[in-house]
Nucleic acid binder design. Structure first.
Length: 332
DNA sequence: TCGAGATGATGAG
DNA sequence: TCATCCTCTCGAT
């Protein structure tokens, strides 16, 4: 279920915890046994995220491509080095290189009871694993290392300190550098990867050529990378744009506005780990939004509820097999 | 205990 | 357009 922001955050986690480390690789579930055997004992040399895909480079030009799809998630456990921006976004930890934990994409109190860190599809922390002495003082004989395997783990990557478990990905495969390049070449621009000005022009020119509805184009990863169903609905509402308008009929300034909004929302998403799409929330509203997933959005997941702006009932319809939420009045 | 549903993508027809 | 794959959570029973 993760959209682009999650994948960039996962890449950061990998960058901090796995790059330049020799890893043990296994496939407890068995479905990636051959691939894991090839990765086992190699050193991670780099990580990059493009849209919803993540590429991990190992020595000898071997790459791992992972796409989480709707259900996939990475669970980090152990003595996890947390990105400073991830930590400070939550306000509980502020130093760089701090070790702590992330649960359901939120930084938990370092002395929290669970040290499972999950980014991707929402997950509840399920197991207790080793925690570092400096964060808990609880390190003892009870802490199993490596952590026990729970559920269907496609791929486990393990260093002396950190364990990353991959579950339910749509894609998990090894690639050559040429294959990685070919995969990336098929993807539309990603604001965090491509040159900003060029990326905007590329997006605008593609959208304004297409007869396809703008609501579908935003979900097309060859048009723009990283947008999923939540951001799609929210961006169209923020632009007061009817999702059914063909791309070529959407005024150029609106198309540019959509791109610039995506740049903003992606940056917020990567920093906070939340798909926060409502501007100017009061501290009280912010807390409510954090507590209740459905309070975070203008229209997403609000079918049958009154539009926050005009009071008209928000509608939901199927568009290319996905649910599309929008306000028929604001987005007329 | 069961089944629906979920922030995706792909391949066949 | 439809079926299929992937895994887990939550609400209904």
């Amino acid at each position: 279920m993760p959209e682009g922001h999650s994948v960039h955050r996962i890449a950061r986690q990998f960058d901090r915890n796995f790059v330049r480390k020799r890893v043990g690789a296994s496939s407890p579930q068995g479905r990636f046994a051959d691939g894991a055997a090839l990765l086992d004992g190699r050193t991670v040399t780099s990580v990059r995220a493009v849209g919803k895909q993540m590429f991990v480079e190992f020595d000898d030009d071997l790459w791992l491509r992972v796409h989480l799809g709707m259900y996939g998630a990475w669970d980090f456990a152990g003595d996890v080095l947390v990105d400073a921006t991830i930590a400070s976004a939550n306000g509980r930890m502020g130093q760089t290189n701090q070790r702590g934990t992330v649960v359901d994409d939120r930084v938990m109190d370092a002395a929290g009871e669970n040290s499972l860190s999950s980014i991707g599809a929402p997950r509840r922390a399920r197991v207790h694993v080793r925690m570092s002495e400096q964060t808990t003082g609880l390190g003892g004989d009870d802490d199993a290392w490596p952590p026990p395997v729970v559920g269907q783990v496609r791929l486990r990557l393990l260093t002396d300190e950190v364990c990353a478990d991959l579950r339910g990905p749509t894609a998990c495969q090894l690639q050559t550098p040429d294959e990685v390049a070919a995969t990336i070449a098929k993807l539309g621009p990603d604001p965090l990867v491509d040159d900003p000005a060029e990326a905007e022009e590329r997006f605008v020119s593609v959208v304004r050529r297409k007869p396809t509805a703008i609501g579908l184009l935003l979900m097309d990863q060859s048009v723009v990378s990283g947008i999923g169903n939540v951001y799609r609905a929210e961006m169209l509402f923020r632009a007061r744009q009817n999702p059914h308008t063909p791309g070529r009929d959407v005024p150029e300034d609106v198309v540019r506005e959509l791109w610039q909004d995506w740049v903003r929302l992606l940056a917020i998403g990567v920093e906070t780990g939340q798909m926060m799409t409502m501007d100017d929330l009061s501290p009280e509203q912010w807390r409510a939004a954090m507590a209740h997933r459905d309070d975070r959005h203008w229209v997403y997941h609000r079918a049958g509820l009154p539009c926050r702006v005009c009071g008209t009932t928000v509608v939901v319809e199927e568009a290319a097999g996905r649910k599309l939420y929008w306000c028929p009045r604001c987005q007329a």
